[in-house]
Design a protein around this nucleic acid. Structure first.
Lengths: 231, 231
DNA sequence: AGCTGCTTTTTATAAACTGCTAAAGTATCG
DNA sequence: CGATACTTTAGCAGTTTATAAAAAGCAGCT
């Protein structure tokens, strides 16, 4: 059963959509203000976010831009704004779909399902173990081994390594690391993540001058290299 | 960068969309019949399929149903059929988006990008390796090797080289490079891309001590020469 | 409570990278 | 030829990153 967070300030429409989606078997939570969406995403952890654009507190575009850095699930913008410019803007800000009101319930449902189908297929298995060459990570014991040897990591070092390894081959943004592991918004100045990466690199015998295991992607974030763990 | 298979039987419209997408840095292949799409998907292995519904040979719905079982990349249906029923049917058959013609090019582009953004994480299609003679590019490690030697590139330089190499043998416009790598519109005066190409040429020549592999196509852009990397 | 040792964050600074511009020279086009 | 487009070098301002070291936080212990 999928969880949907519906952000809509028109109470009548909101309850209509909510009950329709609930009839289709979704668990739907309502939010009527823009400035509370981020908190709701964290506590409710929806599989899909349906976002109106004209909202009290904070407009939908701003909401989208704010949470996109760390919020992984698809965002469907549902709005009365018909202009192409708004549509392009919405999609470029990270929305996955943009639907113009009024919309046939069946169409909305089909689009919701299409988004969930796509993300579900992409979602990774929540394995408790990961292995890359000689590096073995065990998330239930929270231990890292290199060959036979135990690599002693602190709690947060392990969290960081696990998160990077989970996304092996793709760059992970600082914002996402901050939000997920530290649980705080990234203000653009905080160097905590850098320091942890630096510690991690030292313990893993990587060097920052020419890193080959955990790379820095300038202006983007950090990248775990999958095939660099064989000696 | 990304490969798009465009299936459209109206030749004039097809070539319009094709050239527009090519200008945006996509590699676009055209298909005008429905019954040849499956074969084209296998040989061309596109990252995205844009599918018209009314096609000679086999209609778009049937194509979609046929290939969906094994074809992983997103499918965008682009059609003149406006009815909600068709839209719901298309999405339920496995399409990821359904866009009604006529459509603003910018809107189409935004939706294409949204789909690619969402699937990029899951698919390994862009985490490939490219090799031209002694030059080997690894996009998941973001490394370039010339023979056994590592060519040290900055993040920007790697992105640029990767983009040029992906389009080996065809000229890439400054506009496309600007848009794709800097993420902003090209104003026609900015020399930034030139400067970066110059840096890249130096780094590739220093290590190789051989003539240019990245050619300038006067008035058009830059061209990566595929068969010039053997010494 | 106070002490201790370890972990984590903050601070500070150097270094590297990006985006842009200027300028002088070179190449191409009509 | 002049006009236009491109290459290269140099440089600057602003941004981003690495890391040492100091400060703060947090168990567990007496």
């Amino acid at each position: 059963m999928h969880k949907i967070l519906l952000v809509e300030d028109d109470a009548r429409l909101a309850s209509l959509v909510q009950s329709f989606l609930q009839q289709q078997g979704f668990e739907v939570r309502l939010e009527s203000r823009g400035d509370t969406v981020a908190a709701a995403c964290q506590s409710f952890a929806p599989d899909l976010l349906i976002l109106d654009l004209m909202l009290p507190g904070m407009d939908g575009f701003t909401v989208c831009r704010t949470i996109r850095a760390w919020f992984q699930a698809p965002i469907l913008m549902l709005t009365a704004k018909q202009s192409d410019i708004d549509q392009v803007l919405g999609l470029e800000l990270g929305a996955d779909d943009y639907v113009i009101k009024p919309v046939e319930p069946r169409v909305l449902l089909a689009r919701v399902n299409a988004l969930l189908r796509r993300t579900q297929a992409a979602s990774k298995s929540d394995n408790q173990e990961l292995q890359f060459g000689k590096l073995k990570l065990n998330n239930s014991a929270r231990e890292a081994h290199y060959g036979a040897e135990l690599v002693e990591l602190t709690s947060y070092e392990f969290d960081l390594l696990w998160m990077l390894a989970k996304h092996a081959g793709q760059t992970v943004k600082r914002e996402a690391i901050h939000k997920q592991i530290i649980g705080r918004e990234y203000d653009g100045l905080d160097r905590t993540v850098d320091v942890r990466v630096s510690h991690l690199r030292r313990k893993l015998n990587d060097n920052a001058d020419t890193p080959f295991r955990i790379k820095t992607v300038w202006g983007k974030g950090y990248l775990f290299v999958a095939d660099a763990w064989n000696d």
